[in-house]
């Protein structure tokens, strides 16, 4: 039962990540491979603030989200002018820079040692100290993220994002400041990922840089793509397929040393198979670059 709750909590947190990335990659058509960097930023912000400074949890989340927004500007402003392939590479680059910061700025992040002892969250007197309570918190976060992204994508703002996704020149010719829309989408995406980071840090109580690597970013973008980018249920479908199902590996009894590799191979194969046979994803309609 504990284990099932653990999976559900992780699924909820990954849902926030997938949904937030979908706003950027699915609705705006910007294939970014650095979501784990923002995730880590939120986690470290929350962890450092609560562990080293005793900051109240909600403020820690808020601080993480603000940091995520600021960091997103550092990423988006140089890279948004690039065409597709180079944009992807630029986001790879930011992921690598972020990891270097988590790993090497030891005075702030304690480097490879990580930050242990992250306390359970307390919100307005409600102490989240059991798995059931955490599941509730995580689900609330996931629902909030889903609503925000859904609201945005189905509004006139989202209409412009979809236009940018297909033909940015057309959107600009109609008077839309496409850069503003893209930068804003990036910032919202980063803020939500940072929120997921805060939740994650307080759940697993110990974080280190290896939680937030390029591999994780590739996993998150795979969830969005496999589930169906830019669609209502796509990201959540992706979480189901890429987070929940691989847990069944544990029941096959693979030694943990190779389980991680086998899981990664599954992700890779799934991505290739989807691109070959259903590039719009399981639940989606949008295919990149159409």
């Amino acid at each position: 039962m504990d284990y099932l709750l653990h999976i559900l909590i992780l699924a909820a947190i990954y849902s926030i990540l997938a949904v937030s990335l979908d706003l950027l990659a699915g609705h705006a058509g910007l294939l970014a491979v650095c979501q784990a960097a923002f995730w880590g930023l939120g986690a470290y912000a929350s962890a450092v603030l609560t562990v080293d400074y005793g900051v109240y949890f909600p403020l820690g989340i808020l601080a993480g989200m603000c940091l995520g927004v600021l960091a997103s500007f550092l990423v988006s402003l140089p890279s948004l002018r690039l065409t597709d392939d180079y944009f992807v590479i630029a986001t790879f680059g930011f992921q690598i820079i972020a990891f270097a910061i988590f790993n090497n700025w030891a005075s702030l992040t304690r480097g490879p040692l990580g930050i242990p002892g992250i306390p359970p969250p307390t919100i307005f007197g409600w102490r989240v100290d059991s798995q059931w309570k955490f599941l509730l918190l995580a689900v609330i976060g996931a629902v909030a993220a889903y609503i925000v992204v859904n609201r945005i994508s189905s509004s006139p703002f989202g209409r412009v994002l979809h236009a940018i996704r297909e033909d940015e020149i057309f959107a600009a010719s109609l008077g839309k400041n496409t850069l503003r829309f893209k930068v804003t989408a990036f910032a919202v995406s980063a803020a939500l990922a940072a929120m997921a980071g805060s939740l994650y840090a307080h759940y697993i109580t110990y974080i280190d840089p290896t939680n937030f690597t390029l591999t994780e970013s590739i996993l998150i973008i795979s969830m969005v793509i496999v589930g169906g980018a830019g669609s209502r249920w796509g990201p959540l479908t992706g979480v189901l397929v890429l987070v929940v199902m691989p847990e069944s590996l544990r029941f096959i009894g693979l030694p943990s040393a190779i389980a991680a590799n086998v899981r990664q191979i599954m992700y890779g194969v799934l991505l290739v198979v989807m691109m070959l046979f259903r590039p719009q994803g399981l639940a989606g309609q949008y295919r990149f670059g159409r």
Binding site: R151, I152, S155, P156, F157, G158, K176, F181, T184, V188
Partner: peptide
């Protein structure tokens, strides 16, 4: 409705 806050909060949209 093309403003972020209005898109999320749907005031007057």
């Amino acid at each position: 409705g093309e403003g972020l806050l209005h898109a999320i909060l749907r005031i007057g949209v």
